[in-house]
Simulated assay, not measured.
Amino acid sequence: MIVVEEDWLTLNDVAEYAGMGVYAYLSWCTRLLALQAHPGKESESGRGPSPPDTELWL
């Protein structure tokens, strides 16, 4: 997938705000989408997964 510079900069800003790198942020978002695609697979809190420890997700 090709991402234009403007979109990349936006992703980078959002990821930094979340305390993650872009790839970690996209991975976390993908997990959230996967949970929504499978009702009943929520975490114990019922809110989906918590944001990751950034070092582990890079």
Rank of each mutant, 00 (worst) to 15 (best):
S43H: 09
M1G: 15
R31F: 03
A34C: 04
M1E: 06
L32P: 02
T30F: 07
M1P: 11
S27C: 06
C29V: 10
R47G: 01
E16F: 03
H38W: 06
E5F: 07
E5G: 03
V4G: 08
W28D: 03
E16W: 04
L32D: 01
Y17K: 11
L56D: 08
L58C: 11
A34I: 05
K41F: 08
D7C: 00
I2W: 14
M20P: 01
L56A: 13
T10A: 13
S45R: 13
R47K: 07
S27D: 10
P49A: 03
L9E: 11
I2E: 13
V14M: 09
T30K: 10
D13H: 13
A18R: 14
E44F: 11
Y17H: 13
T10Y: 10
K41Q: 12
S45K: 13
A15E: 02
P49I: 11
D7V: 12
S27F: 05
A37N: 08
M20G: 00
D7P: 00
G48R: 06
L35G: 05
L56G: 12
P51T: 04
A15I: 05
T30M: 07
E55A: 14
E44L: 13
L9V: 06
T54I: 04
L11P: 00
Y25G: 01
G40C: 10
